[in-house]
Computed example of a mutant assay.
Amino acid sequence: MSNKVESPMWRALDDLYNDVSAHQTTVAQALKAADKQMDSGKGDVWMGPVARSWGSDLHGHSAGLGSQTSAFLDAVLKERNSLDKEVTPQQAHMEQLQLSGRI
C-alpha cells in the first residue's frame, strides 16, 4: 500500500497546461483581426504617423502571440514534469497551502 497522494502542484500545472492547450489556437489568433483592420496604420480604421507606429507594434504583437503561447506551454510542461506526480500527504498539504496563497 502506497502512502503517497497526488501532488496538488502537479495537478494544478497539468490542469493549466490542458486549459491553455485547449485554447491555444484562439489565443494565438486573438490579435489577427485587429491587425488586419489596422494594416500597420494604412487600413480603414485609423491612419497617420501615430497609427502606423501603433499598427506596426500591433502587427509585431500579433505575429509573436503564437510563439509566446507555445513558449508558455513549454514552460508549464517543463515545470510540471520536474515535479513528482505523487507526494507524501505532508508534502501535498504544503503544496495546497502554497497554491492557496497561505504560505
Rank of each mutant, 00 (worst) to 15 (best):
S2M: 15
N3W: 08
N3K: 08
K4H: 07
K4N: 07
V5D: 07
E6W: 05
E6K: 10
E6N: 14
S7P: 05
S7Q: 04
P8H: 04
P8E: 05
P8G: 02
M9E: 01
R11H: 09
R11K: 15
L13P: 06
L13S: 07
D14A: 06
D15N: 09
Y17L: 07
N18E: 11
D19E: 15
D19F: 13
S21M: 09
S21G: 11
S21K: 09
Q24L: 02
A28W: 07
A30P: 08
K32T: 15
A34E: 11
Q37P: 02
M38I: 05
S40C: 12
G41R: 04
G43S: 06
D44V: 11
V45Y: 15
M47N: 09
M47C: 09
M47Y: 08
P49N: 14
W54V: 12
G55N: 03
S56G: 15
H59G: 00
H61S: 11
H61I: 05
H61F: 13
S62I: 05
A63S: 13
L65E: 13
Q68H: 15
D74N: 15
D74W: 03
V76C: 02
V76D: 01
L77P: 02
K78N: 11
K78T: 11
E79A: 15
R80F: 05
N81W: 00
S82Q: 05
D84C: 03
D84Q: 13
K85G: 08
V87H: 02
T88K: 04
P89K: 11
Q90A: 14
Q90W: 01
Q91E: 14
A92L: 11
H93P: 00
M94G: 01
M94Y: 12
E95W: 01
Q96G: 10
L97W: 05
S100V: 06
R102S: 12
I103L: 12
